[in-house]
Simulated assay, not measured.
Amino acid sequence: MKKYLSYSNHDVAVIHDENESEAVLSGLKRLQVERDIKSDDVVVLTPNWVNNQKTNPSDGVVVGPETLRTIIKWVKARSPRRIIIATGAGSGNTKQVMEEVGFDLVIEEEQVEFIDFNTGPYVTLSLNHKKPNTIKVNKIINEMTYHISFTQLKTHEEATMSASIKNMALSWPTTEEHGSPKKNLGIHEELHGFIAAMAESIKIDLAIVSANPVMIGTGPTKGIDKHTGLIICGRNPIAVDSIGARLLGFMEQGIGYIHLLKNKGFKETDIKAIPMKGLSLVDAEKIFSEKVYGEKMILETV
Rank of each mutant, 00 (worst) to 15 (best):
H147R: 14
S149P: 05
V97H: 02
D40K: 12
I148P: 06
A77W: 04
P173E: 12
I208S: 05
K166P: 08
K54C: 07
G278T: 01
H156L: 08
I298D: 09
L247V: 11
L31D: 02
L248R: 00
Y293S: 06
K95H: 11
K29R: 15
S8K: 15
K203N: 13
Y293A: 06
V62R: 01
A77C: 08
D17C: 10
D17M: 04
A211H: 01
M168E: 11
G294S: 08
I271L: 08
N56Q: 10
L185S: 12
H10Q: 14
G265P: 03
E300N: 13
S58V: 11
A199G: 13
G193V: 05
L45Q: 01
E66L: 12
I115L: 13
T221N: 09
V106L: 00
A239T: 11
N56H: 12
E252R: 14
K154D: 11
S210P: 02
S149M: 02
E34D: 14
V292L: 04
M251E: 14
E99P: 01
K222L: 15
Q111E: 15
K286A: 13
N51A: 07
I135A: 01
D17T: 01
K38M: 12
G256S: 08
L125Q: 12
K136Y: 08
P220T: 07
P181D: 12
T46D: 09
I71V: 15
I232V: 14
K277G: 10
D41P: 04
N236V: 09
T46M: 05
H192M: 13
W74N: 01
W49Q: 14
E158Q: 15
G265E: 06
I238R: 03
S8L: 14
N138H: 15
V101A: 03
P121Y: 09
G186M: 02
G102K: 00
G294T: 03
Y293F: 15
D41L: 09
V137P: 03
I165T: 06
L28E: 01
N48V: 03
L5A: 09
F150N: 10
K183G: 11
A211P: 01
I37K: 07
R246I: 10
F114D: 13
K95L: 15
V302A: 12
S39A: 14
R246Y: 11
S8E: 15
L105A: 13
L45H: 01
C233T: 08
E190S: 13
I85E: 03
T269C: 07
T228H: 02
I84Q: 07
I165E: 00
E113V: 06
I85T: 02
N167L: 04
V75I: 14
M215R: 06
H156K: 09
R235C: 15
M215A: 08
E109S: 10
E34G: 09
K54H: 12
I72M: 00
R69A: 00
G217P: 01
H129K: 09
V44F: 10
D225V: 10
V42K: 04
K226Y: 02
L191A: 03
S242D: 07
G88S: 04
G223S: 11
K54N: 12
I83D: 02
A159Y: 11
I148W: 02
T218I: 15
D17I: 02
A13R: 03
E34I: 10
T301Q: 11
K54D: 12
A197D: 10
K264R: 15
T70M: 08
K131G: 06
L191N: 08
A13P: 02
S180M: 03
P181W: 04
